[in-house]
Amino acid sequence: MANLTLPPKPKNSLYKKTKTIIILILVAALYVWTFLSIDIDWARAMERAANNFHRVIPRLFDPDWSAMGDVSDKMFETVLIAFAGSVMAAILSIPLAFLAAKNMMGIFSVIGKWILSAIRAFPDIILAVLFVVAVGPTAFAGVLAIAIGSCGMLGKMFSEIIEQIDMDIVQAMQANGANRIQILFTAVFPQIIPEFLSYAIYRFEVDIRASSILGIVGAGGIGTMISFASSNRNWNEMGMILLAIIIVVSVIDFASAKIRSKIV
């Protein structure tokens, strides 16, 4: 053993080790806190599950076909909510995106970025709660919730696209003597439109999922039926609803992926 030459220990080893240990302790403490204070009545949960299992699970896989008419109506409404909301969001997020793009607004872009992250911090459903109170329990409350909720994410994506454009073309136009509006239309828009569209369509996919649950707070669409079916414990109908959601979401995901691959 004596003739072995071992490599020198890494120089920052002590600092690194303390850092790792502190992080490990923090993470461990977080988990200890979580598991110690979490309050789950296992016995009751398991007992209920044993009692309810045959009443819930088999019925989910045996959809109530007689509800198909109502379910398709509401699912169609869900798609409309998502569509109207996405279009509104796409339009709303354009000015917000320019406001948040560093190469367009300089240091003022910070304001735009703050607005966008504030919007993103609101879960869609909270917005739906607010709008249901504001405009009544209708599908339009859902449209507004989707429109506002989506423009947080969409505005952020759009502003990132704007920040990546080739500024040389803008400079070339400035050198031509073009004014700001002309520059916007000839140098900026052509560079960003395909990506914009692609993200807007992608957001429509996300919004379909979002709008299908808004109904549980009264904002229209299939979620309304989820809410009823669950309070009536009508699991056959829930099976039908679930089937409708899975089919519509899959179809729209597939179509959207096809369209997006054509655009970009």
Binding site: M1, L4, T5, L6, P7, P8
Partner: peptide, 20 residues
């Protein structure tokens, strides 16, 4: 330990041991 030592020796032979 022999393996670590061997690895270090090998690095020395191709003169890259300072980047260990």
């Amino acid at each position: 330990k022999e393996d670590v030592s061997l690895a270090y020796e090998s690095l020395k032979r191709v003169h890259i041991d300072e980047k260990i």
